[in-house]
């Protein structure tokens, strides 16, 4: 698994306000897979995700130690904004730029990173991303619509489109369906599965069924430590650790 790892995490420790939230995390995340990080609330899943794209840099009371490699490159050798070009993120609550149109939400990053040579190419890339995010059909007639007028599920797919438009190598998803209804959740899950050919996806979920439905690999995290990690089928059918077994049947 490690030879083809897109993301390697070595001995990662995160302290928030003096409290150890993650302790000695080691993970190899294979290329073009969906890697689920599951665990109960407060176990440190989101904290781990935000360490990968250095979002903790903004918080002075958070201390991150350890090594993370993305596509073989040590993330500490990059500026945070360079790293975040390679590692996109979709957040727990949909957070499109509410004042911008659907089109501009996706086009903004492309424009600022100068990823389209003209308007035609920009439109093409925006359309590509919206189609990939399964949103195109619902918005194609009114791309000037302001993002805050979309439904929650549509907003989240817009956020997915916005992230993948930049063609990152890795896509981090922090419980992307936790704020959504069942129908929207189903659409987004289908969408995530379809995206793994193009991206390596790391998804955090507190819902073991979701991990079972969509992921190829699972890491079970409990109280800041990795309890067990492996192929999804194995973790759910033959867990090695008694705690994992309890968790997947909903007893933790």
């Amino acid at each position: 698994m490690s030879s083809e790892a897109m993301v390697k995490i070595r001995d990662l420790n995160v302290r928030i306000k003096g409290k150890d939230v993650l302790k000695g995390i080691n993970l190899d995340i294979p290329k073009n897979s969906i890697f689920a990080i599951m665990g109960p609330s407060g176990s440190g899943k989101s904290t781990l995700l935000r360490a990968i794209n250095k979002l903790w840099d903004l918080y002075p009371d958070v201390e991150v130690k350890g090594k993370i490699f993305v596509d073989g490159v040590d993330v500490d050798s990059m500026e945070p904004h360079q790293l975040r070009r390679l590692v996109g993120m979709v957040f727990q609550r949909p957070n499109p730029f509410p004042h911008l149109s659907v089109f501009d939400n996706v086009a903004l990053g492309l424009k600022i990173h100068k990823m389209a040579k003209d308007k035609k190419e920009l439109r093409k890339n925006v359309e590509w991303a919206l189609k990939k995010a399964y949103l195109w059909e619902e918005v194609k007639d009114d791309l000037k619509r302001k993002a805050h007028t979309l439904s929650g599920g549509q907003q989240q797919r817009l956020c997915i489109a916005r992230a993948i438009a930049l063609k990152p190598k890795v896509l981090l998803m922090d419980e992307p369906t936790s704020a959504l209804d069942v129908v929207s959740t189903k659409k987004i899950e289908e969408n995530i599965v379809s995206l793994k050919n193009d991206f390596t996806i790391i998804i955090v979920t507190h819902n073991p069924q979701q991990a079972a439905r969509i992921s190829d690999y699972v890491a079970f995290i409990y109280q800041g430590e990795v309890v067990e990690v492996g192929p999804t089928a194995e973790i759910f059918t033959r867990p090695k650790h008694p705690l994992t077994e309890k968790y997947v049947v909903g007893k933790v």
């Binding site: 794209n53 979002l55 903004l58 945070p80 904004h81 360079q82 790293l83 975040r84 070009r85 390679l86 996109g88 993120m89 957040f91 609550r93 957070n95 499109p96 730029f97 509410p98 903004l108 990053g109 600022i112 990173h113 956020c159 916005r162 992230a163 930049l166």
Partner: peptide, 18 residues
């Protein structure tokens, strides 16, 4: 402006000032 909106921009690889 909610922090998540700013983080949404940063997560796109944009500089803080941008």
């Amino acid at each position: 402006v909610p922090k998540v909106i700013k983080e949404g921009g940063l997560a796109l690889g944009l500089k803080y000032t941008t």
